[in-house]
Design a protein around this nucleic acid. Structure first.
Lengths: 146, 146
DNA sequence: CTTTGTGCAAAGGCTTTGCATGCTT
DNA sequence: AAGCATGCAAAGCCTTTGCACAAAG
């Protein structure tokens, strides 16, 4: 899944970024989304809401945002990057494979487990990526959903 | 990280596959590897060992193998697919980011945690993908490695 | 005015696909 | 003999990059 905050946790190397309409639109699109969204979805969404913006700009903004640690990036099975805005703390997501809704979940046990496993095998600078997928209550086993 | 056995566990829908030299070479390359390898690495490796094979064939074989559940597929941060042969059982890997060595690790606690988290949020058909990365003993913090 | 951001389109990398031929069964 | 597998190369997809213009500070 590849959640990538970077090995060191919080990058915090926030370069002075300008305040443009496009940059704001990207943030807004992220905020308005229930779960993870692809760059192209975000691009389409912004355009549909009336703001002119290029796909390259969306990618550039998204990359800056993720480098600043302001958004999380995961990668789906197809290799497409998915973005979501959330706090800088380390956590994981429970993602609905049907509607894309994502819930941030407590992961303390996993954090410990990962650290433990790493030490046990003599690994250092241990980090991990984890995503949990499933069908949420709304999309769950029903007449049309599965 | 996206380990993809498919939602149902073991696919087992093994279509009759032919026994070709190339197919064998791919399996052999996987067996001879300490950890995960990219399709292109495998391709190069096979050619270097004297077997003629096309890149497309490597991809096709790898895809068939993963669909049959004979190999695991993960995806690195760059979006490249990495393959590794391992048993059909569900497990996870501790991967060295430097040399690619992969260790299969006990994951019972994580299995339970994932199932628990899913239920707690009303999710069904819960599955997960997880990889732990780090520097192994050989590549660990040293004069040139870190 | 200087610097950074934007747009368009082309390029880039990884992966898949089309079509004729070879090998497996 | 029949059919899947192979090879090569072109196409496909997502993403990044180059260059000139516009906007932000």
């Amino acid at each position: 899944m590849t959640v990538d905050h970077g090995p060191g946790g919080t990058p915090a190397d926030t370069a002075p970024q300008r305040d443009t309409r496009q940059r704001r639109a990207v943030l807004a699109a992220l905020d308005g989304a229930a779960g993870f969204r692809s760059a192209q979805d975000i691009h389409t969404s912004i355009r549909q809401s009336g703001t002119a913006i290029g796909l390259a700009t969306v990618y550039r903004s998204l990359n800056l945002l993720s480098e600043s640690g302001e958004i999380d990036v995961v990668r789906d099975a197809a290799g497409e990057q998915l973005f979501r805005r959330c706090g800088p703390e380390h956590h994981h997501h429970l993602v609905c494979v049907s509607c894309g809704t994502a819930v941030e979940v407590e992961s303390a046990p996993v954090e410990r487990w990962a650290a433990h496993v790493g030490e046990e095998h003599g690994f250092t600078e241990v980090r991990h990526s984890l995503e949990v997928f499933g069908l949420c209550g709304n999309c769950g086993p029903g007449p049309t959903a599965g």
